[in-house]
Design a protein around this nucleic acid. Sequence first.
DNA 1: CACAAGTGTTTACTTTACTGAACATTTTGA
DNA 2: TCAAAATGTTCAGTAAAGTAAACACTTGTG
Lengths: 182, 182
Amino acid sequence: MNQDIGGRLRELRTRRGLSQRQLGRLTGVANASISQIEAGKLNPTVSMLKKVLDGIPVSLSAFFSGDTEQAERFFFRADELTEIADGGVSFRQVGANLKDHSIQLLRECYQPGAGTGRHAITHQGEECGLILSGRLKITVGDQTSVLGEGDAYYFKSSQPHSFHNPGNVPCELISACTPPTF
Amino acid sequence: MNQDIGGRLRELRTRRGLSQRQLGRLTGVANASISQIEAGKLNPTVSMLKKVLDGIPVSLSAFFSGDTEQAERFFFRADELTEIADGGVSFRQVGANLKDHSIQLLRECYQPGAGTGRHAITHQGEECGLILSGRLKITVGDQTSVLGEGDAYYFKSSQPHSFHNPGNVPCELISACTPPTF
DNA sequence: CACAAGTGTTTACTTTACTGAACATTTTGA
DNA sequence: TCAAAATGTTCAGTAAAGTAAACACTTGTG
């Protein structure tokens, strides 16, 4: 844990071309502390880490979300988007097999009458989508709406939510959400 | 600062229906510490805060990015998605006027020959998309590919990237990305 | 009512985060 | 070539984080 923090801090600091002493003077933190944090020999307080990061500058949020890695593949052919069907609902996820992604982009298709049960187990993150064709009845919290082609939705996944196709033609849409687990 | 952390922790804990002691037993942290953190009287170490958050469970990333607020609107009619055109490229963003969102879902249209310059100023986050119609030539890092209907892409925005429509019909796609700024 | 089990808070005490000043090396420049 | 001024690391002292055990209070149950 502290090894991770230290390594990441060192990477950010050196990438910025700063020495431990420079960063220390800049932030009012002892250079010894920065050295020990980077070596994983110190268990920094949040306020301490924040002071140091302010000098880089990087937010705590950015620091812990840590998106510095490179993706190994960028392009996916249509037939690679394996379809997952469940009842009258089918999904095709872009980049489903990527090991570390923060967006789930789905092409979804709801057959007439199909839908999801109410998601009682709400998850973190956010969801949004845009209707390509057909009609979809969406309930979020205590609000319900029937969306048609070109309409869209956006909500925090912590809201209980459900989808249902009330029409008599399939409903196609594209949805994007942040992953359920952090 | 510690007031903020404390308040946020208390909000998350109580929303979860946990008492300080329950959370303490669950995580192996003294309930007194949780009490003091919530009161802003303690300056927790990162590892300490992480142990506590693991019991909720919330990641450090989610904790500091703070996506617990409720969206005020969930549904958007097609004509509300105001179009932004720039050269031969047009965008329609879902939930563009939401004050705090972590996904940018765009319906994009590239006219024949249109494209973006190479994005030299790379930003944080990730981008992905799915081609609805037409063809789009995408360059990411040192890789280039021409995608057609149903094809998709996914990459970290820190990679230099550019888009261009090499065909003679408009190219429509849906893209999703995490916001450029933290 | 009384008592048991829960809640969050406060208080000594132990552990440790954090500092300032040393250290050993490497780089810069006259 | 030899200071001079960087670099990162180690170390003793101190300020504070974190704990265990009390506290005062509320809630439910026989």
